[in-house]
Design a protein around this nucleic acid. Structure first.
Lengths: 170, 170
DNA sequence: TTGATAGGGCAGCCTTGTTGACTTTCCAAG
DNA sequence: CTTGGAAAGTCAACAAGGCTGCCCTATCAA
């Protein structure tokens, strides 16, 4: 399909003519794709009386067990009060466990319970299924480009948060 | 976490292995990038006491002037009541004009006023600036892949809506 | 001991989504 | 020319999940 392989960015400034119309299509692609991206977990969540905010909390606690409330706050980019409401229901429902920090007893280290792990898996598997299908359909080269553009779109500070996550030991 | 999923490549000769971890990174890239994507217009909107919903309405009315309320509803994927509240403030504030349809006088054809055009331009220019920078940084090939993956992620019905938009005459 | 930090709780506000019920306007078919 | 149904709009009520502001406790570190 694409015969020419050009290495973007690095050295020779590519002549990249971007019309407003091309950019608009990218913008709309983001809009529609993001809606699709959240649709599957949203359906599962609706049945359980949870929302996207719960999903996000479960996701980040799952991928970095023991992270503190403050750390989670920073990743999610919401206020303490906003997160607290969500976190409270997750703790009350037995999906998340809040342990007093060993190093610093003021901190609360967040972990998923087996029940929490189960829901997180169910949600993320739905999301992964769509992502997997899209990746397969678009092919490996497209996937690389996809990731490159998304990373370039982030703010430097968000990007470093994201990079830190990417590197996390298994 | 480390179970490998074998994905047959398009050509057949390249084997693409997608771990749950790779998919998770894609998911997080979408999350962080979408936040960045909406951040710039959100700041402008906050000053004007508008929200993202107003932006979305302005965007689609701008790119398809004269579309009906029902059509806008379908594109945005929200309820009539939800849209109506937003649309009402835009009309009251003189950003959007609602004209009785010629063909069918029950329909309301939506147009931006000069004031509406001005705000839409301001909002979309902020968004385009970020998109443009990301596109330049990532390069043309990455952009193609970006679009391919996003399109593959959409539901068929959403995709056809999106495709229809792409084709619209200038 | 004292100031700063982590977290929780409470009150209240806003936007933007939802359902449901209802009315008005209008086109088109009988 | 009447009438059924589609399109649009309105009202009421509700919920999720953002926000701010303020206050409290526990804890750590200087």
């Amino acid at each position: 399909m694409q015969e020419k392989v050009r290495i973007p960015g690095m050295g020779g400034e590519d002549l990249l003519f971007l019309t407003d119309d091309q950019l608009r299509r990218g913008i709309e692609a983001m809009f529609f794709a993001y809606r699709a991206f959240t649709a599957d977990p949203d359906m599962i969540l609706a049945d359980l009386d949870y929302g996207r905010a719960h999903h996000r909390a479960l996701h980040f606690i799952n991928r970095d067990p023991g992270l503190t409330v403050t750390a989670l706050l920073a990743v999610l980019g919401v206020t303490k009060q906003s997160l607290n409401r969500v976190l409270r229901t997750l703790i009350d429902d037995g999906l998340v466990e809040s342990r007093v920090g060993r190093r610093d007893r003021r901190e609360r280290q967040l972990h998923l319970t087996p029940k929490g792990v189960a829901l997180e898996r169910r949600l993320s598997e739905a999301q992964r299924a769509r992502m997997r299908a899209a990746y397969r359909k678009a092919g490996p080269q497209a996937v690389a480009g996809f990731r490159q553009v998304l990373e370039a779109m982030m703010d430097p500070e968000m990007r470093s948060q994201y990079q830190a996550m990417k590197e996390l030991p298994e």
